[in-house]
Amino acid sequence: MKAILYIGHGTRSKKGADEAKQFLEAVINQVDVPIQEISFLELTEPYIDEGFKRCVERGATEIKIVPIFLLTAGHIKQDIPNELAPLRQQYPDVKLTITDSFGVQEIILDAIAELINTTSGTLSPSDSLLIVGRGSSDPETRIAFGQISEGVQERTGVELVEVCYLAAIEPRLDEGLEIITAKASGRIIVVPYLLFGGLLLTEINQKVRKKEKLGYSITHTGSLGKHEVIQKIVIERAASQGELLCSR
């Protein structure tokens, strides 16, 4: 019997965890697979091993892993496979496949432009964007955000787009805000490249509000998961074949 195990990142924020679970429950209601379970890599229960075992207990003989991650980095390349390794040994007869992270897709860049326009209305070339990534030491992260920056700039027509990160690589959020406020001549729109709310989005919101109180015309779009296209991508991933990890 076929099953899907969705794997989110996880957060210490109850509000953020609830948001992710509600999102995935909405996806589950639109996917025609008999067994579907939600799990998280860290910080939020149920964890991967519990979700996996629930699938098996419900009769799963094939499990498709669907990671809910925007980009391919350490979590996709190392952490999730490491968590799955002992489960593969424990349940060798269960066929296991996995889908890719979302990656840099045209429809996601379109969605970001829509979120920006919804937040701030039509932009002028003098407005500026600050894209905030989670951050990773994986070298592909900078490459991906270079593509994201270019794609969003093309769609919005602004002259200045900067990128900063919340962890692992520079520039960090504080420096990114200093750079953008020093260069900007018009409005500043901060774009958190995050799927759901949580402590990271709260941090961005607090620092944006501080800049606003100093007199800057600055706001942020909120998380990307609220755009319907993200749900569509997950549903498509759930229907895709996936890459074989192990078989009998």
Results as ranks from 00 to 15, higher is better:
D100A: 10
Y165F: 15
E159C: 03
L214M: 13
P125A: 05
T181H: 03
A17V: 03
Y216G: 03
R142K: 15
T202F: 08
Q89I: 10
Q22C: 11
S13C: 07
A182M: 12
E140V: 13
S124C: 11
I179Y: 10
E140F: 13
E228T: 14
Y193G: 12
G151H: 06
K2M: 09
A239C: 13
P192H: 08
I180P: 11
V190F: 00
Q153F: 08
Q36P: 01
I188P: 02
G197F: 09
I108K: 01
T118Q: 15
L245Y: 03
A111G: 11
E37L: 04
P192M: 03
T118W: 14
S101D: 09
L177C: 06
I233Y: 03
E203T: 15
E178R: 13
A238L: 05
H220G: 08
S185A: 14
R58F: 10
G157C: 05
K64I: 06
S223H: 15
F23Y: 02
I35L: 04
V163A: 04
N29C: 12
E50V: 15
V158E: 02
R142P: 00
K14V: 14
Y165M: 14
I4E: 05
R54Y: 03
Y47N: 08
C55Y: 07
I218G: 07
R209S: 14
G151S: 08
T118N: 14
T119S: 12
Q231T: 11
T44E: 03
L41D: 06
I63V: 07
G197I: 11
F196V: 00
E37K: 12
Y6F: 14
D127G: 11
G225H: 07
V132W: 06
E106P: 10
Q36F: 02
A85S: 13
R58D: 13
V152P: 06
R237Q: 15
D174S: 06
E175A: 12
G51L: 04
V191D: 10
A168H: 15
A167R: 12
L115I: 09
L244E: 04
I107N: 15
S39R: 07
T122K: 15
I131Q: 06
G146I: 07
T141L: 14
R172W: 13
I233E: 03
I112C: 01
P192D: 06
V152Q: 06
G16R: 05
I108Y: 08
G198I: 00
I179N: 14
F102T: 10
I188W: 05
E170R: 11
G186S: 08
E37V: 07
A167L: 08
D49W: 01
D93I: 01
R187F: 10
Q147Y: 13
K14R: 14
E154Y: 11
S39P: 00
G225C: 02
R12A: 08
P139G: 01
G186Q: 08
I68Q: 11
R155F: 12
D100W: 10
D93L: 00
R142W: 06
E45C: 11
S223M: 14
H75S: 01
E106K: 14
A239H: 14
V94S: 02
G176W: 09
L109V: 01
L166K: 10
S136D: 09
A184M: 11
L84S: 00
A111Q: 06
H220R: 08
Q30H: 11
S136C: 04
I235C: 00
